[in-house]
Design a protein around this nucleic acid. Structure first.
Lengths: 129, 129
DNA sequence: ATGAACCTTCCAGTACAGTGGAAGGTCAAG
DNA sequence: CTTGACCTTCCACTGTACTGGAAGGTTCAT
């Protein structure tokens, strides 16, 4: 399977696949006589795993960690568990932060909804911020 | 006031202040005979405004827009109102996305909390993702 | 034999908000 | 007079996940 076919099968681009190889997420592909990359079918699963990892909010670096553990023959389960737990805590913090920010901005926005003030003092940039 | 003093007064670094100047967020400072930047007191307020804008989740580019409108003598109020409204919509979308992601990851994590499976099929990377 | 579609490598750039460091100039204290 | 703290410019780099393009090689159909 050539790189364009793998790209189509996984819904990505050839650029991205080469980038994944360079980043160590995909093992260097075998080459045909022509020099073209020659992928086996399980590359599809591997790319699918990368996409599912991304959908779970993991970074490519974290996905690469899991993949490398797997390559060393160990089941990465407990590592995955840890990563997911960590990601969950990050998400909670991030959501809390955004909710607080939403509150702040919502108030600023409500104030700014008042009619244009005829006095906007020159020594401040904008009274709403 | 030299750049180091302004940096201290505003809780930032000289590097960042020069970067703001280069980005058009701060007007080019007057220079002393030595070539050192010489800031007036209102620079403190201006940097404060930049920081408040950032705290409101605006990008430096957006803050720069407001600042430039202000410089043209117009009150930026209605523009600020629009920006805040836009930011509010973005935030709502972002929060909704993160909550959905949290749901997904929470489920994956719960599955991964089960004891290490003794069969982890070799043709998949990790059953949890 | 020629054109299209595919592949190769390499270099560079995107957005964002800075940060790091080198090489050199200025100023006040000791 | 020298030391140290401060300032100047300029260039390059950080992290993230790609994306764009140039210059050239391969394969297949016409």
């Amino acid at each position: 399977m050539r790189i364009g076919q793998l790209a189509e099968a996984t819904g990505t681009t050839t650029k991205t696949l080469r980038f994944y190889e360079e980043s160590g997420l995909l093992p260097p592909a075998e080459r045909m006589a022509s020099g073209y990359r020659d992928y086996t079918d399980d590359a599809v699963g591997r790319v699918g795993f990368i996409h599912r990892g991304q959908a779970a909010g993991l970074t490519l670096a974290q996905i690469g960690q899991i993949l490398r553990i797997r390559e060393h023959g160990q089941p990465p389960c407990s590592h995955v568990r840890d990563l997911l737990g960590e990601r969950l805590r990050e998400l909670d913090a991030q959501i809390a932060e955004l909710l607080a920010l939403r509150e702040t901005i919502s108030q600023l926005h409500a104030q700014a909804a008042e009619p244009e003030p005829d006095t906007c003092s020159a020594d401040e940039v904008c009274r709403y911020i």
